[in-house]
């Protein structure tokens, strides 16, 4: 166990360093005329935004991968669950009267903790409810049926937010002032970026510990392996699947809150794009594999920001989807996954 953690940490550290160097290299490609120190500074700044965006995708991707791992369903509504998370956080903060940056650090921390807690619980319940009413009745139906239901749920979530809150983008409160910054290698990076990255990493580690070490986690893994066998061993399948949805959706809720803090701007249909990219991340990492989903999320964030630095920002989506298609064609199991390609 300790060896595994050590190895993971080493891989993560290596990936962090290599991707940082890569980003600087790409920045140099994008802006060749600038001086070396400028390139390093821009590259570093971009690197941190890639980490932030990547963290958001990674958190969403975890939900996809967990649900797929346990019931082999691509939960199309998951991107919209993330979007609802952003709006729930928005409602919490604005209803408490916080529309902008909070100056007092203890208050800020308190409000953020409260925000995370409430958003995650609300979204977790929402996710479990979606599972209960939309997916559970179809568990033994043909494969197409729950997929179509998922699309239906996605429509419903989007439209409810659109009708209840707004048709157009809403400014979401940026509680953490962007004035808090730190300087690294000439780049001035908002502390918020680092904070988001750390929160995401903490949540992911917590998930790993939960899945790896608790009774519920064991139930989840056994259900994913063989549902019938797990049932015979006394695992409550319905509860386990519901908990999986709860956790996945709670993580998406956290991602939604973070997204609002970071972008300062949310809209009812943001879940579509984000969901698609996060799904790509999950596939990239090997669907069903939580560590892979996290890595995939960061990889997608990186690709997206790299597209901007190299002047291809208009082709962001096309790039991400090309990656998706290439991965699925050449390595359908993803980077860390087991073989899942269908043979026929």
């Amino acid at each position: 166990m300790t060896f595994r953690i050590l190895r993971l940490a080493l891989i993560a550290a290596g990936a962090l360093v290599i991707s940082w160097l890569l980003m600087i290299g790409l920045t140099w490609l994008g802006t060749r005329s600038e001086s070396f120190s400028n390139v390093v500074a821009t590259g570093t700044a971009q690197y941190f935004s890639a980490l932030t965006i990547g963290a958001i995708y990674a958190l969403i991707a975890l939900g996809y991968t967990m649900v797929y791992g346990i019931i082999e369903l691509i939960n199309f509504a998951h991107g919209d669950v993330f979007m609802v998370g952003a709006f729930v956080a928005y409602l919490i903060f604005t209803s408490l009267g916080f529309g902008g940056a909070i100056k007092s650090i203890p208050l800020l921390i308190g409000i953020l903790l409260l925000g995370f807690l409430v958003t995650m619980v609300v979204l977790g319940v929402l996710g479990a409810a979606i599972e209960r009413f939309a997916y559970r009745p179809l568990r033994n139906a043909p494969r197409l049926a729950p997929l179509i239901t998922a699309i239906g749920v996605s429509f419903i979530l989007q439209n409810v937010v659109q009708v209840l809150i707004s048709n157009s983008p809403v400014p979401s409160p940026q509680l953490v002032s962007l004035e808090y910054r730190f300087t690294l290698l000439g780049a001035s990076v908002p502390l918020l970026n680092l904070l988001i990255f750390l929160v995401a990493v903490v949540l992911m580690i917590a998930l790993q510990v939960f899945v790896g070490g608790t009774r519920l986690g064991r139930a989840m893994r056994s259900t994913a392996q063989d549902r019938e066998a797990a049932q015979l061993m006394g695992v409550n399948i319905n509860a386990t699947i519901a908990i999986t949805f709860f956790i996945g959706s709670a993580l998406a809720g956290a991602a939604g809150l973070i997204y609002g803090l970071y972008k300062g701007n949310i809209v009812f249909n943001l879940g579509f794009d984000a969901g698609l990219k996060a799904f790509t991340a999950a596939v990239l990492g090997g669907i069903g594999n939580t560590v892979g989903a996290a890595l995939g999320g960061f990889a997608i964030g990186f690709i997206e920001v790299a597209a901007v630095t190299t002047g291809l920002s208009r082709w962001q989506e096309a790039l991400v989807f090309s990656v998706l298609i290439l991965v699925l064609v050449f390595r359908p199991a993803g980077i860390l996954g087991q073989q899942i390609g269908e043979r026929a």
């Binding site: 082999e72 369903l73 691509i74 494969r143 197409l144 997929l147 698609l276 799904f279 790509t280 596939v283 208009r314 082709w315 989506e317 096309a318 991400v320 989807f321 090309s322 998706l324 298609i325 699925l328 064609v329 359908p332 899942i340 390609g341 269908e342 026929a344």
Partner: peptide, 27 residues
């Protein structure tokens, strides 16, 4: 390249394709 994949992957790939095509025409 994609029909070898299982059905739900196909759904995502086609979804991505459906997104890319208008982007290509736009750009």
């Amino acid at each position: 390249p994609t029909l070898r994949l299982r059905g739900d992957y196909l759904a995502i790939v086609t979804l991505g394709f459906g997104e890319i095509v208008p982007v290509v025409f736009t750009n």
